[in-house]
Design a protein around this nucleic acid. Structure first.
Lengths: 135, 135
DNA sequence: CGGAATCCGAAAAGATACTG
DNA sequence: CAGTATCTTTTCGGATTCCG
């Protein structure tokens, strides 16, 4: 697996320069969309099941992300004091309110992602040509 | 000043777990929204002006981000071979197609950000209380 | 089972200085 | 002006280990 470095977040960005900057840290932090998506797709589920459904996230990171999302009110954590302990996570109403936004994003993706791919290829070809001339 | 580390991006996330993951790297990478916003707000502008308008970005990072966005077709770079050199950046049509999405995000922010703030306060209070009992 | 604690490595962001 | 080069900083993500 590729070790990755880390981009912080969008938090330090000057707010006046981008009014939606604050939301990005809440909604589009790393792993938040996969988590919300999985929670939305499979409904309430236990920690380990959630981890399996997401596929590649480690328990440490999943815990961190869930904690932040719980704090932001996007997910609800339910602890059952049993032996062995049982904890379940589910999407909150606030978290569900993001569904239309994600749908909008999916629509944009369907409509414009091919254009991005095309732009990338053209750019790479032009770059290749420029390098050829430069060399 | 807060240096930031880095979260890579959302790219390594398993696609099946979240269909919109690919778009996140394109649209919501660090600095992309402030850059697009500034380009949208002030129109075509030169490198240094853009840097000033954004406010806190260093030339190195701005160059990196602009290069990526140009490759993705979100911005258009125009180079005027003069002395001194003049380069202008503007938002592309593809980049402009994101405007409704950003508006949607701004709407969600206006409607739900207070709820997030409230959730955070309640969470912190509950955590404080839990710590008090635990200590 | 559901985490918390610890160590480690990678990559990106920032600061600074320097060119064509 | 518009970057590029270099060095340092930051912290996120992964792996491992341990606990109630």
């Amino acid at each position: 697996m590729a070790g990755v470095g880390g981009a912080p977040a969008h938090g330090t960005t000057s707010a006046q320069a981008c009014p939606i900057a604050p939301v990005l840290d809440i909604v589009f932090s790393r792993w938040t969309t996969p988590i919300l998506w999985t929670l939305h797709a499979f409904g309430r589920q236990r920690f380990v099941v959630l981890q399996r459904n997401i596929g590649t996230i480690t328990p440490k990171v999943l815990t961190q992300r869930l904690r932040q999302m719980e704090r932001d009110g996007l997910v609800v954590r339910t602890y059952h004091p049993e032996v062995p302990p049982r904890v379940e996570y589910e999407i909150s109403e606030l978290g569900s309110s993001l569904a239309p936004l994600f749908a909008h994003l999916a629509d944009w993706s369907a409509d414009h992602l091919p254009r991005v791919e095309q732009a990338r290829q053209e750019f790479d070809v032009a770059e290749e040509a420029a390098a050829g001339r430069g060399r």
